[in-house]
Design a protein around this nucleic acid. Sequence first.
DNA 1: TTTTAAAGGTTGACACTATCAACTATATTG
DNA 2: CAATATAGTTGATAGTGTCAACCTTTAAAA
Lengths: 143, 143
Amino acid sequence: MTDISAIETIRLLAHAVKKRLALQLEVEALGLVPMQVRLMKIIHRRSPCTALDIASFMQRDKAQITRLISGLLEQGLIEKHPNPKDKRSHFLLLTPEGDRIQESLSKLIGQAEQSMLEGIAKKDMQSFFTVTQKMLKNLEKDQ
Amino acid sequence: MTDISAIETIRLLAHAVKKRLALQLEVEALGLVPMQVRLMKIIHRRSPCTALDIASFMQRDKAQITRLISGLLEQGLIEKHPNPKDKRSHFLLLTPEGDRIQESLSKLIGQAEQSMLEGIAKKDMQSFFTVTQKMLKNLEKDQ
DNA sequence: TTTTAAAGGTTGACACTATCAACTATATTG
DNA sequence: CAATATAGTTGATAGTGTCAACCTTTAAAA
């Protein structure tokens, strides 16, 4: 079927990415689900980082993020630190073990990304990011 | 958080699209789930169309597609016709009611897509399709 | 200063999405 | 003709996702 819409293209691409990375994660057998890996990346990159920050960035329900965080806490991959400015909230940080796993998975995901981008010119990727940021902005406005 | 990866961009975009369309679908109150709407579009566009065709196009498990099809059959939106060449298989077609709903939803989704693409130059969209097709091809090769 | 409203996070409940395995009937291959 | 593969179905289960209600804390309003 040729000539599919932008929306359908985005869906197919996202699903292909998801399957590709789920396969890899299964191979690593770390007992993590894909969403947890994403959280670890966010916690790694952003400091300080709260559940609300994550929910906001990923545009997900707080309930879902709370559950994913619980799982990571149980596995000793992250820890909670009190937020000095707000007793309700806590800062999330990777433990040494969490950091090690995050690094390792990041390498693998980076490789998968490189593979996905093979043969695509840098300027085309720049255009891709410009376009997708605009799409996101438009979708945000629609809400 | 700036400078996110292509993979994370794709995920965020797909989720934003999903939420946007799920909201709209809820407003229409048709008793359909988002995946069923996608199936109806595929059945509308492709003739003949089998469960396998859909599973293949969407890269999903046959079991999932079978269940989605069941739901659409129950709601009288599609019907099965025997495949003269293969007794195991059947051709799927929209009923008049299904066609009407498909047309109606297509208009709405088209509008949502137009809204999402507002302010994006035609040549940039062409580049977007070129890039995403290449990404899909690369991901396929990886499997 | 007190009252009211909102917010950060949690828990219960439930729906949607998704895959794997095993199965039956049919088609294909050797 | 026998063996193998396939189209679709069903059972089972996991992952994703949201809504509502709640508690404690913070912020805003009176």
